[in-house]
């Protein structure tokens, strides 16, 4: 589904991604872990098409298309979804109107009719229940005045409505209490299928108790330096990242 080859990206002349390669197949769940500042959010945003990051080398192919060639909106319409680490507040635009506009734009791209109001409302109600999201948040401006946890839930709520093929979740678990974590995990698990793939960026292996990854990758200083399975996440939780840094030194020595 997604094939990242030797991806380099920089911002303001500073190299942040320094040769990332990653293969994600349909049905898989990948976890990306790594210390602060290692480039996890940058990778997520580059995949979603944020143009402040310049891709200086490498390629990304997604469902046979050159992903880097698509506008951010076309990536979304092709099924890429980024749950932001820091969801953006949009005063004056109601959550529900925003989501309906988004859904209809995606449908239009695929030659489908806009969703009728009753059908949309039904869909939205169902998803708010799964995420245990207060319905009053729907009428409020997008993310404005939402608590940290509400913002994260709102991201997953949007994902649930838009039903992407490739979901990139950037630290969706941070700042969530245990109930919220459970609700969010349920939302994510509902999306999981043999046709979809999920990339989860996380600091903690907490989320991985709920959504079991097939692969775990360690991102360090703009590179994936180690890949493994679920056990690797547990090891990282226990021992931190220093032992990996040590390993790397030994290899290069």
């Amino acid at each position: 589904m997604l094939s990242i080859q030797n991806l380099h990206a920089s911002v303001g002349g500073k190299d942040i991604l320094k040769g990332i390669s990653l293969e994600v197949k349909a049905g898989e769940v990948h976890a990306i872990m790594g210390p602060n500042g290692s480039g996890k959010s940058t990778l997520s945003k580059v995949l979603a098409g944020r143009d402040e990051y310049e891709v200086t080398a490498g390629s990304v192919s997604y469902l046979g298309k050159d992903l880097l060639d698509l506008s951010p909106e076309d990536r979304a319409r092709e099924g890429v979804f980024l749950a932001f680490q820091y969801p953006v507040e949009i005063p004056g635009v109601s959550n529900i109107m925003f989501l309906r506009t988004a859904l209809n734009e995606i449908r239009k791209y695929h030659g489908r009719e806009p969703v009728e109001a009753p059908e949309f409302l039904k869909l939205v109600r169902e998803k708010t229940r799964i995420l245990d999201l207060d319905e009053s948040l729907l009428k409020r401006p997008v993310n404005e005045g939402f608590s940290g946890g509400e913002k994260k839930r709102n991201e997953i709520f949007q994902m649930a409505v838009l039903e992407p093929k490739l979901a990139i979740l950037d630290e969706t678990d941070s700042g969530l209490d245990i109930d919220a974590l459970r609700a969010v995990s349920e939302g994510i698990n509902k999306l999981k299928s043999s046709e979809n793939a999920i990339i989860m960026v996380t600091h903690y292996q907490r989320l991985l108790d709920y959504i079991v990854p097939d692969f775990v990758h360690v991102l360090l200083n703009g590179k994936i330096v180690k890949s493994g399975n679920r056990e690797l996440a547990l090891e990282l939780e226990e021992k931190g990242y220093d032992w990996i840094r040590e390993e790397l030194k030994e290899e290069t020595a």
């Binding site: 098409g49 506008s71 979304a76 979804f81 932001f84 506009t101």
Partner: peptide
């Protein structure tokens, strides 16, 4: 970018804001 990342085209995103 946030609006675009949800499938809303750039012109429409500008209009919406």
């Amino acid at each position: 970018f946030y609006l675009q990342s949800r499938g809303i085209g750039k012109d429409m995103a500008r209009a919406l804001l």
